[in-house]
Design a protein around this nucleic acid. Structure first.
Lengths: 343, 343
DNA sequence: CTTCTTTCTGCACACGTGTGCAAGACTGCA
DNA sequence: TGCAGTCTTGCACACGTGTGCAGAAAGAAG
């Protein structure tokens, strides 16, 4: 056996075996190029015989399109982001794009890590994590690489964004809780500097105002279980407790239920209704049966990949809003139960 | 402004601006190459001025090392794998390697997707999901790319593996449950064709045998919440119920607790002790307080990245076993409670 | 001054591929 | 046969970089 064949075969090897030129091999692997069916067959046969597949690195160098997409993600311990990442990668692969992943601990890291990503000549960047600085965005824009934010947005030119309709979802939740007959409604915010938490709070409090209900209390839990536990202890330690609590994500809502039950001996939802946001898998577990706002991850990631390819063709940056859906479960009293309790 | 400068700067641009040759620029960005401090300073200044960073694609083409690593992952809805992925990526990045991600739905997909990964000339492949076929392994080996499996192993040459000491962890759990005074101990298996589930079962049943305790019952839950629910219904629907249940992962253990409490009205651990494996975050939630076997994700991913770099230098394939640690919590009766109950 | 060593720099080639261009082969029509 | 059009193929260049090689410059030793 030729020693060369033990390593990766090159197009020249295939060409020699098939008795054609190297260009013919290249064209046989290119959609819509001029190759006769006969030579194409010869070439493909030789290629499989040698285990040849075109070197994507060299191809990327000459075409100036790497067919790789940078995917920036943080906090995979949040199941929602894990789901987003998985769906995103599957859709990129189906579109013939390879996800080059970048995991970052804090948003600060982003500015130092994204240049490293651009060095790999990615065709675009998908950010499913934190926000990004304006210098970074302009850097990507100058390099002609579209940027798409998922679940966050930022007021910058040349930055696309896909978010759930956080305002609408939170408004629906306000309706649901007020209809349930709750009088002392509290809100538990996520990370204060994220658009998602701010939009959810704005939609929730805004709709409460329209319904002539004042927000009873507010705390912040930084989207984490541990911080949410502390915040909920403060909320439930008051002399007059809230009777409903809307949390900016499900992880915090689950923390709230745990603290309410095990540290304050409360029944959910009889003594306290609890609701969350994201509709993660744990929300449907029988132990919590959590009312939540469902984010349509499929539509969001579809839109994100679409924007990426659109931006690749020079389209203008857009912000796509995906509708939210209220998933009512057993952790909140609904209309009838509320009426019964009042009776 | 030069139109060229609006796109990515090349080394030749930096060279011209600094008044040196292109080779000097290349050497200024290479560790340990002959460049005088003076010219290096000139070059770096010109580089920052143009926003230059070396094109990793072109560099990979000439050095024949892409500095990218394929990372194959499946089932990110399992928080354990999400944690593994996050830790792996962070460590690869620290080592100057870029993770090229490949998400696959079933193990069958792997054979068709990994060649696509090899086309990108990855320096190695990390598989944190399913197993891989022997043809695939030999394909990687022939291309000189080290392969490391995480949390699974397979008896093939040229395939490295890092696993938790599943046998040891399961044995410790057997000791714990027997010491707790349990008499009717059941096991809930994961996916039947995975080495992790088989090793955990082997270790658990083996140690029970040494302690002269027969396994009371066995079911399979495919590592998922839904399938575990069905399996646990069968287990608890018997006339004589188990008094302890060891599940091959935490997700199934959580399902078991939910079913026991909400469908059978049982108390955990008074009526039924439940334990899991993985020690995911939800295991520490107050609602479950689940006894589990902790897999040291840090050490496992450290070892995996180490093996990858070792294999890159031509070292022989190895199988590394990372010790497991029993994390006792409130979902299992311990020695004293067991003694009390017997009294 | 000569000779040797050390440090530095530029030339030129190589990596594996896509594609414009021109020339050849073939077909259909007059 | 002559001509125009369509299809097919090979040549040669380009993408942006790393690095062996040889030569230059500078200093040290004789």
């Amino acid at each position: 056996m030729n020693p060369k064949s033990s390593l990766n075969a090159r197009s020249i090897d295939v060409a020699r075996l098939a008795g054609v030129s190297r260009s013919a091999v290249s064209r046989a692997f290119t959609e819509g190029a001029y190759v006769s069916g006969e030579t194409r067959a010869k070439i493909l046969k030789a290629a499989t015989q040698l285990g040849y597949s075109p070197n994507a690195i060299a191809r990327g160098l000459i075409t100036r399109r790497s067919r790789m997409v940078g995917v920036v993600v943080a906090d995979l311990s949040n199941p929602f982001y894990a789901r987003v990442l998985e769906a995103t990668c599957l859709k990129l692969q189906e579109a013939g794009l390879a996800p080059l992943m970048l995991s970052c601990r804090r948003s600060q890291d982003l500015d130092s890590l994204v240049p490293q990503l651009l060095a790999y000549q990615v065709d675009g960047v998908l950010i499913a994590a934190s926000t990004l600085s304006s210098t970074l965005a302009s850097q990507c824009a100058r390099a002609g690489r579209p940027v798409v934010l998922i679940n966050r947005y930022v007021n910058l030119d040349a930055v696309n964004a896909v978010t759930c309709d956080n305002v609408g979802g939170a408004r629906a939740m306000a309706d649901h809780l007020v209809q349930g007959g709750h009088k002392r409604i509290a809100f538990l915010a996520g990370l204060e500097d994220t658009s998602s938490s701010r939009d959810r709070e704005r939609g929730f409090v805004g709709r409460l105002g329209e319904l002539k209900v004042a927000l009873f209390a507010r705390e912040s839990g930084n989207y984490t279980y541990a911080d949410a536990c502390s915040a909920v202890r403060r909320l439930l330690g008051r002399r007059l407790r809230p009777d409903a609590l809307f949390c900016a994500n499900d992880t915090m809502a689950i923390a709230a239920i745990d603290i309410a039950r095990h540290e304050f001996g409360l029944e959910v939802p009889a003594d306290l209704s609890v609701a969350g946001y994201d509709n993660i898998e744990a929300a449907s577990w029988k132990g919590y049966d959590l009312t939540s706002v469902d984010q349509d991850v499929d539509r969001m990631t579809d839109a994100a990949v679409g924007l990426l390819q659109n931006g690749d063709k020079g389209g203008k940056p857009r912000h796509i809003l995906v509708p939210a859906r209220l998933e009512k479960r057993g952790s909140t009293r609904d209309v009838r139960a509320g009426a019964m309790r009042r009776a």
